[in-house]
Design a binder for these strands. Structure first.
Length: 477
RNA sequence: GGCGGUAUAGCCAAGUGGCUAAGGCAACGGUUUGCAAAACCGUCAUUCCCCGGUUCGAUCCCGGGUGCCGCCUCCA
């Protein structure tokens, strides 16, 4: 039984989709005005793992993630760069997709852009006006939270004593226009600084507010009620709180069954901030010589509701884990045993799968799942000398099956195979390997070791096996 | 000021009202190897942040501290 923590009830709940085994999943996507940083990436890796696990568990998942391609920041920065809004956001959208790919995040089924869903947003706003949830003030339209029953349930606002303008971020002008400080904007009337970014609509010239886009796009693709909505914990209030108010105000139906929020991350023990210069992007990590997929391992290894401290030591640890798994896969490829034995590979796999599932079923306990993977590897390594090719195939298939959830093993292994093929085609390297074997069998160890060192410098590690055999491990990470 | 999260070894990190407190990284010793690499075996938590309470029994439940983190209008 899969249990997940629902922010709405603050409890672990059994997961039961609204429609049999079909799951509608929405996650908040990026505002495309810059490269994504590690904090953003954690959210996307989390949703990816959740989705992969649901699929592994047999659910049919439809995943929708929005692209916010119009807001204050995209307008401001596109103007600064002298590009049109579209040129500007297209650039970062493309970069975003590349970054997701390099941490092996599977793309959502639908990635709708806000600017392409004005109709849907307008229709929700119209309905909210008709039903009295919204009011026009100046050129803008606001949602009146006092009209909304249960407003703030998700964020448990009733328990809180909201500090007015806690962060000094409230715009004083906006303040005058709203009936209540906490009312939020659905439609923003055009202002001079918006330049040529506006839509002519029945509400006048302007653009949509932020919250409305997620309501519009999620309901368009997943229906008025759907199963899971994800996002970073900072979005609980106000973004998701307001999404609920708008959507439920408009449809009169319960919007989302399960809300899941991932915790934030620290960088080397410190808050990410512009002034500390620790807003790492994937490119910056890669420039330091780390394979981007290692970032996925780091982000995934810690439970999603736990604060994660991103460190370069952690990246090294991820590298060691990846290497350990790959080394076992390589050993399975180079097995020499052929005969019958009493090793119960199928039983080992079945037991392991059960433990992996039990761990992940507990609100995605990845640590437990990793522990099981490590225990399996240890057992395989203990038995490696007697495992035969049939058993090796079974074990490899199982590791790749788990990788359907984890999402890094196959990628690292394939990379190894590509490099290995390159080495095998390289006649110069092959010649060196032969020479080394010759020196070695002649007990000319200095010469043999010299060649080994030379090859190692080129990323090729020769591991001797009994007899004349050897295993090539590449410096792949 | 209000609300919430969290504290487990040198580091990362599960977990449980009682039995050996998972797993990984690092380190150290050993087996194997011509030497390595990989692997295996072994060592590595007697305040599980502190104080108090409940209990036959608390790392776990409750209360109070302390540290760190977050939210309180456009941030993943």
């Amino acid at each position: 039984m899969l249990k997940i923590f629902n922010t709405l009830t603050r409890k672990l709940e059994e997961f039961k989709p609204l429609h049999k085994n079909k799951v509608g999943l929405y996650s908040c996507g990026p505002t495309v005005y810059n490269y994504v940083h590690l904090g953003n990436l954690r959210a996307y890796v989390f949703v990816d793992m959740l989705k992969r696990y649901l699929v592994w568990r047999g659910y049919e998942v439809t995943h929708v993630m929005n692209i916010t391609d119009v807001d204050d920041k995209t307008i401001r920065d596109s103007q600064k760069s002298g590009k049109t809004l579209k040129e500007f956001t297209d650039f970062y959208e493309e970069a975003f997709i590349k970054d997701l790919d390099s941490v092996n995040v599977r793309l959502p089924d639908v990635m709708p852009r806000a600017t392409e869903h004005l109709e849907e947003m307008i229709s929700i706003i119209r309905s909210l006006l008709e039903k009295g949830y919204a009011y026009k003030q100046g050129d803008s339209i606001y949602f009146s939270i006092s009209k909304s029953e249960n407003y703030g349930e998700l964020a448990e606002l009733s328990k809180q004593n909201l500090k007015e303008n806690a962060d000094q971020r409230l715009n004083v002008k906006d303040e005058y226009e709203k009936d209540s400080a906490n009312d939020f904007v659905l439609w923003k009337g055009w202002k001079e600084e918006d330049g040529d970014v506006y839509w002519e609509t029945e509400f006048g010239k302007g653009r949509p507010g932020w919250h409305i886009e997620c309501s519009a796009m999620s309901m368009k693709y997943l229906g008025e009620s759907f199963d899971i909505h994800c996002g970073g914990e900072d979005l609980v209030f106000p973004h998701h709180t307001n999404e609920i108010a708008q959507s439920e105000g408009c449809t009169g139906k319960h919007f989302v069954k399960y809300w899941m929020h991932n915790a934030h991350l620290l960088i080397e023990g410190q808050k990410m901030s512009k002034s500390l210069g620790n807003f790492f992007t994937l490119r910056e990590i890669a420039d330091k010589g780390y394979l981007p997929i290692l970032v996925r391992i780091v982000l995934m290894k810690v439970h999603y509701r736990q604060n994660l401290n991103f460190t370069f030591v952690g990246l090294d640890e991820a590298q060691a884990i990846a290497k350990k798994i790959l080394d076992t896969l390589i050993d399975l490829d180079f097995i020499t045993a052929t005969g019958e034995n009493d090793f119960d590979a199928a039983g080992l796999v079945e037991g392991s799968r059960q433990k992996f599932l039990e761990a992940m079923d507990e609100d995605l306990n990845v640590s437990g799942a990793f522990a099981e993977l490590m225990n399996l590897l240890a057992e395989v390594n203990r038995q490696i000398k007697r495992i035969n090719p049939v058993q090796a195939k079974l074990l490899k298939e199982y590791l790749f099956e788990l990788d359907g959830v984890l999402g890094f093993i196959r990628l690292i292994y394939d990379r190894y195979l590509v490099n290995l093929a390159r080495v095998e085609k390289d006649s110069e390297i092959q010649e060196k390997i032969k020479q080394r074997l010759f020196f070695k069998s002649n007990k000319e160890y200095e010469k043999a070791d010299g060649i080994r060192a030379e090859l190692l410098a080129r990323g090729i590690l020769i591991s001797d096996a009994p007899g004349d055999k050897y295993v090539l491990r590449l410096s792949y990470l």
